[in-house]
Amino acid sequence: MADPRETVLEIDLGALEHNYRYLKARIEPKTKFLAVVKAYAYGSDSIAIARKLEALGVDYFAVAYTHEGAFLRDHGIITPILVLHPQPVNFDQLIARCLEPSIYSDRILKAFQEAAKAAGQRHYPVHLKFNTGLNRLGFREEDIPHIAMKAQQSEALKVISLFSHLAASDDRSESVFTHAQIDRFKSIVKKISGKLDNKPFLHLLNTSGILNYPEAQFDMVRSGIGLYGYSNNPDLDQELKPVATLKTVISQIHEITPGESVGYNRAFTARNKCTIATLPLGHADGLGRIYGNARGVVSVNGQKAPIVGNVCMDMLMIDISGIPCDEGDEVILFGKGHSAEMVAASAKTISYELITGISQRVRREILP
């Protein structure tokens, strides 16, 4: 019998280094590498991840929101940090922590110009984001004359990069659309380049772009999910190592007779005699109800066991019939040997949603 432990999310920094070096090997040596560490570094531990990547020589970090970047700065991270979705209410904090905003609309451009000027800034670095087809954030090509003029008129700002975001770089059936985005970005760069005093660096590719469209790497690439062990391609996933492994233990084992039910609302009723194990984690820990009723599968001593009944707030139950195990034994929810991509797909979602959703009440354990 294994020693009883608790639910823990293991963060393997060795796996992170492996993934970083693998992705770096797919780009030109001169191409800069930006690591996306938003959402607690994709649900893991943003400080541990950022410190490791900084030691490995990463060129840039990116976060979604200002407070995420401020948190990194407050823990000693000195590498440049791009804030992808800044809001005007946070501009004073952003400037105080030397974070670099993505400027994606006229409203944000005007507000940041005012904030930078009020703070006595001169040539504060900003990144202009353009919408090439994702239709989420970004200026359009026809906005170039207006935004170039406003940027040039402001002594407070300096445009240091131009970028966009691919919509379907992981889907080979959408290659025509992706190439159209790449061409649109090139057109934007050509039109704006002569309107700026300096030469901004360019970045477009995400993880799938790095792997599928390396010819469009420009001056820098941005990687998120690939660093954490997933590539959106089952074949390429074999080359990467999951950084996070969610583990828990068996709290109790029950023998269930035909006709007995398990969990809230009697969502599972046994047709045959079966053995049920209860685990100490639930939807408050990030394993949502979508994984209940056999849509989610866990690993017990190397064998797959389906989740039965509805996932509870702090517990879930699995069917361990025929699997040799005891109370206190370890159970893997996702990670090494039990891919988060596979677990998520069984519930008709994606690995991003699963790994970023793990609650902060789950203890993180950092492995070197």
Results as ranks from 00 to 15, higher is better:
Val308Lys: 12
Lys195Pro: 00
Pro101Met: 07
Glu327Pro: 08
Phe163Ile: 03
Ile188Met: 09
Ala267Phe: 00
Ser346Phe: 08
Pro306Gln: 04
Ile147Glu: 07
His85Pro: 01
Gln181Gly: 11
Val362Gly: 03
Ser187Thr: 13
Ala118Thr: 09
Val58Leu: 04
Pro368Cys: 10
Arg295Thr: 05
Thr79Phe: 02
His18Trp: 11
Lys195Ala: 11
Gly133Trp: 06
Ala284Glu: 15
Phe130Lys: 09
Arg107Ser: 10
Ala70Val: 15
Ile77Met: 00
Ile320Pro: 05
Arg271Thr: 14
Met1Trp: 05
Leu84Gly: 04
Leu16Ala: 04
Pro86Ile: 02
Glu215Gln: 14
Ile49Trp: 01
Leu205Gln: 00
Glu174Pro: 02
Phe177Val: 11
Lys129Gly: 09
Leu279Phe: 05
Pro80Tyr: 00
Ile47Phe: 06
His18Ile: 09
Arg184Ser: 12
Ala244Cys: 13
Val300Arg: 10
Gly57Cys: 01
Ala62Glu: 00
Lys191Val: 04
Asn135Leu: 07
Gly292Thr: 01
Ala344Tyr: 00
Leu333Met: 15
Val331Pro: 06
Asn206Gly: 09
Tyr228Lys: 04
Ser193Val: 04
Thr178Leu: 01
Gly224Thr: 08
Cys325Asp: 10
Arg26Ala: 10
Ile323Phe: 08
Ile81Met: 07
Leu99Tyr: 07
Ile250Tyr: 08
Leu94Ile: 01
Lys241Glu: 14
Thr275Val: 13
Arg271Asp: 14
Asn131Thr: 03
Ile250Val: 12
Phe334Arg: 08
Leu166Cys: 04
Ser339Gln: 11
Asp237Leu: 10
Tyr228Trp: 06
Tyr104Arg: 05
Val343Thr: 07
Ile276Asn: 07
Lys186His: 14
Asp237Thr: 05
Ile318Ala: 11
Gly357Ala: 07
